[in-house]
Amino acid sequence: MEFSPNIVGFACQWCTYAGADLAGNLRCKYPPTIKLIKVPCSGTVEPEFVLEALARGADGVLIGGCHIGDCHYKEGNHKTERRMLLLSKLIEDAGFDSRRFRLEWISGAEGKKFAEVVTEFTEQIKELGPNPIKAKGGE
């Protein structure tokens, strides 16, 4: 059977989560790979959540926040941007291809963009193959 990646998404309720809803309203098609966890702000997402998801075998992790300058909480996404820049390095050092982890700015008006990002991310992870932890039989 064809490999269908399992992507865990953390979505800011003001932008990306709303954008994902809008994708639904617009009936944009994208693969059923992503499952969102709603959070108040991308700044709520602890880097540990991302590592946990990868350690548990998620093939990809997406964090969706508001565009810089548009944060509902003024600058939560600035913090996200800085944390995730560093986290991405840690993930790489841990032997993961950091392309399995993405930070995207998707506004509540960008339903189409949400669908495009998920489609494209899914394709990328398909190329990378399953999470290597799963290949090892899990930990």
């Binding site: 602890e46 880097p47 540990e48 991302v50 913090k79 800085r82 560093l86 986290l87 840690l90």
Partner: peptide
């Protein structure tokens, strides 16, 4: 990871 979060913040 917590370190990255605290320091980056």
């Amino acid at each position: 990871a917590r370190c990255v979060s605290a320091i980056a913040s």
